[in-house]
Amino acid sequence: MFKNKKSLLFIVQALVPFVVITLLFLLLPSILMMIDSFKNGSGGFTLENYKTSLTNMFYLKAITNSIGISLISSLIGLVIALICAYSISNFSEKVQNSIITILNMTSNYTGVPLAFGYILLLGNTGIFVLLFKHFGLNSLSNFNIYSWVGLIITYVYFQIPLAIMILYPSFLGIEKEWRQSAMLLGANSFKFWTKIGIPVLLPSIVGTLSILFANAMGAYATAYALVGRNYNLLTIRIGSLVVGDIMPQPDLAGALAVILGITTISMMMINEKMSKYIKRG
């Protein structure tokens, strides 16, 4: 009994730093942000910030742009990651470990360094653009990285490693014996994946999509470093309102941040419901 109490005390003490950090750096700022979103310039209570966020076409466009780029980059990244994860699962264990190690490193290559890397490669005087011009590939040399397509390409880049690392264990969970048994019963590779493989992977695929969507919705540094304030994204608008050059509007920024959080959480809840429904089916 004494040993159990001592173990319990050790666990509680070990959790204290985590709880304190969570309260100070996650819950407290979130609560203060939500409180500020209901304030007006004089500190009184108002819903005007939310009314402006949901009726002003400028901010509505920022919301729709962020949702659009998040969905597109998540779907593209998911498709590529499915192919890559399946391919990696067919290598030897040693090669798999090496690839996963590389993926762990590339998944951290985001933000300003990622944007700077793409500018060096595909900017107006980027390496590939100069090569395209040298070889007379004018259609490719006119590519504009500071555009909607450029943003999607950069977003897809940091989505792929994350998606692969999430999906890769799911492919390892598909036993080789299942495929062999299906082949013995007369099923070809297409039937195996449509009847067994994909249904088994579907909950993981849906869950991965929600994580990728949340990852893209919250991206700020990459987009800002690449296009600055020239493209209307929700995170960029929030940043502009917090550190406005003329008149900062932190209350309106708080309302937009709450909308961003609600959108992300709603998407994750929808995907969670879909995953449970798929598992029951």
Score class of each variant (00 low, 15 high):
Asn108Lys: 03
Gly111Asn: 04
Ile72Trp: 06
Leu78Lys: 11
Tyr86Ala: 00
Ala81Met: 05
Ser87Val: 06
Ser107Gly: 02
Tyr109Phe: 15
Ile88Thr: 07
Thr106Val: 14
Val95Met: 15
Ser87Arg: 10
Glu93Asp: 10
Leu78Phe: 07
Asn108Trp: 02
Ile72His: 11
Asn104Pro: 02
Ile99Val: 15
Thr106Lys: 14
Ala85Pro: 13
Thr101Glu: 02
Ile80Gln: 07
Ser87Lys: 11
Val95Gly: 06
Asn97Ser: 08
Tyr86Leu: 02
Ile88Asn: 04
Asn90Ala: 10
Tyr86Phe: 09
Ala81Tyr: 09
Ile80Leu: 13
Ser89Ala: 14
Ser98His: 10
Asn108Tyr: 04
Ala81Asp: 00
Leu75Arg: 09
Tyr109Lys: 00
Asn104Gly: 15
Ile88Ser: 04
Ser107Asp: 02
Ile76Glu: 09
Cys84Asp: 01
Thr110Val: 15
Val79Gln: 04
Glu93Ala: 08
Ser87Tyr: 04
Thr110Ser: 10
Asn97Ile: 00
Gln96Asp: 03
Thr106Gln: 14
Ile83Met: 05
Lys94Phe: 04
Asn104Ala: 00
Gln96Thr: 05
Cys84Leu: 12
Met105Ser: 06
Val95Tyr: 11
Asn90Thr: 15
Leu103Met: 15
Ile83Tyr: 07
Ser89Glu: 10
Ile76Val: 15
Ile80Ala: 07
Cys84Gly: 01
Leu82Thr: 11
Gly77Thr: 02
Phe91Gln: 12
Ile100Gln: 13
Asn90Leu: 14
Val95His: 13
Ser73Tyr: 02
Leu103His: 14
Ile88Gln: 04
Ser89His: 10
Ser107Thr: 02
Ser98Val: 10
Ile99Asn: 13
Ser73Pro: 12
Asn104Met: 09
Leu103Glu: 12
Asn90Pro: 00
Leu82Arg: 01
Leu75Lys: 11
Ile100Asp: 07
Val112Arg: 06
Lys94Gly: 01
Gly111Phe: 09
Gly111Pro: 07
Asn97Phe: 00
Lys94Leu: 07
Thr106Glu: 08
Asn108Arg: 07
Leu78Ser: 05
Ala85Thr: 13
Leu103Val: 11
Leu82Gln: 02
Val95Leu: 14
Thr110Trp: 00
Ser74Arg: 09
Leu78Asn: 04
Gly111Lys: 08
Ile100Cys: 12
Val112His: 03
Ile102Ser: 10
Thr106Leu: 15
Ile76Asp: 07
Ile102Asp: 03
Glu93Ile: 01
Lys94Arg: 15
Thr110Met: 08
Phe91Lys: 14
Ile76His: 11
Asn104Phe: 05
Phe91Thr: 09
Ser74Ile: 03
Tyr109Leu: 15
Thr101Cys: 03
Ile88Leu: 05
Asn97Gln: 09
Ala81Gln: 07
Val79Asn: 06
Val112Met: 09
Leu78Gln: 08
Val95Ile: 15
Ile88Ala: 04
Leu78Ala: 02
Val79Asp: 01
Ile100Tyr: 10
Ser87Asn: 09
Cys84Tyr: 08
Met105Tyr: 09
Thr101Ile: 05
Ser74Glu: 06
Tyr86Cys: 00
Ile102Pro: 09
Ile76Gly: 06
Phe91Glu: 12
Gly77Glu: 06
Thr106Arg: 12
Ser98Tyr: 12
Ser74Gly: 08
Asn108His: 03
Ile72Ser: 09
Asn108Leu: 08
Val112Ile: 15
Val95Glu: 12
Ile76Trp: 05
Cys84Ser: 10
Ile72Cys: 06
Tyr86Met: 01
Ile100His: 11
Ile100Ala: 10
Met105Pro: 03
Leu75Val: 15
Tyr86Ile: 00
Ala81Lys: 11
Ile99Pro: 14
Gly111His: 06
